Amino acid sequence: MAEEETKTTEAAPIVEAGKTSKWLTSNGFEHEPMGLDASGVEIIKVDAELLIPFATALYAYGFNYMQCQGAYDAGPGQELVSFYHLTKLSDNADRPDEVRLKVFLPRNNPKVPSVYWIWKAADWQERESFDMFGIIYEGHPSLKRILMPEDWQGFPLRKDYVSQDFYELQDAH
């Protein structure tokens, strides 16, 4: 009986909102703070349909540099994640502010708006995420494979990807 009581009284850890998260909340942008990454940078969960308003607001707030965009697979049957590492570059900062955005997407229809029109650095990075994970970046000017041949079947970095038995290389001699 005491063991059951312990299980029911344990609560999920409370995640304290960081500086950027507080700014977003004060400006009417509802979101879920996810804590800090290993480098101490705050992570914010954003819904796919709200990514462009969030990204635009963060750009206006000074996050003028997209350090990295990428994706990962949370596991077979789980969500795909598109992430964005943003930096606020300025002349008078010892260490620039940083924030990480994460957008969780369903495996069967992973679509998210492209941030290419805000940060041009997203161009090839979104193409790579498309190529390796099958995430559709809506509004991207040239969303096509960048690493795999155009006729490649599937998305090689998904954890449920089954490798082809044989793939013939064209013009390999």
Rank of each mutant, 00 (worst) to 15 (best):
S163A: 13
M34E: 14
P76W: 08
Y116S: 02
E3K: 11
W117Y: 12
L105E: 03
L36H: 01
G134F: 07
L147T: 06
T87S: 07
F133A: 07
W152K: 00
L51R: 13
T56E: 13
Y137F: 14
E4W: 00
K111V: 12
H140D: 04
L50Q: 15
E150T: 06
F155M: 04
L86V: 08
F104C: 04
V115Q: 06
Y137D: 04
T9Y: 01
P149G: 03
L169V: 15
E42D: 11
E150R: 03
G35C: 06
K22D: 15
S142A: 14
N64T: 04
V103K: 08
R145C: 08
Y72E: 00
I43E: 09
K102Q: 15
D171E: 13
F54R: 12
V115Y: 01
F29Y: 14
G70L: 00
M66N: 04
E79W: 10
F29A: 01
Q78D: 14
I43T: 10
G40K: 12
H85T: 08
K45H: 12
I43Y: 04
A12F: 11
G70K: 01
S82Q: 13
D47M: 11
P96M: 01
G70C: 04
I146H: 09
V15R: 07
F83W: 14
T20L: 02
K159T: 05
N27P: 01
F133L: 13
G70A: 01
W124M: 14
K22S: 13
F155S: 03
R145L: 00
W152V: 02
A57C: 07
G28P: 07
G70R: 05
Y61E: 10
R107C: 05
T20I: 12
G77C: 04
K102F: 05
A93W: 08
W117S: 14
L105Y: 05
G139I: 02
L24T: 03
K45E: 11
L50D: 15
Y84R: 07
T25V: 09
I14Y: 02
V46W: 08
F155I: 06
F83G: 05
E3A: 15
D91R: 12
I44E: 05
K120M: 01
Y65R: 10
L147E: 05
P141M: 11
S114Q: 13
I135N: 05
V115G: 02
N64S: 07
A93E: 14
P76N: 03
D91S: 13
F155L: 00
Y59V: 00
D151Y: 09
D91G: 15
G40V: 05
L143K: 10
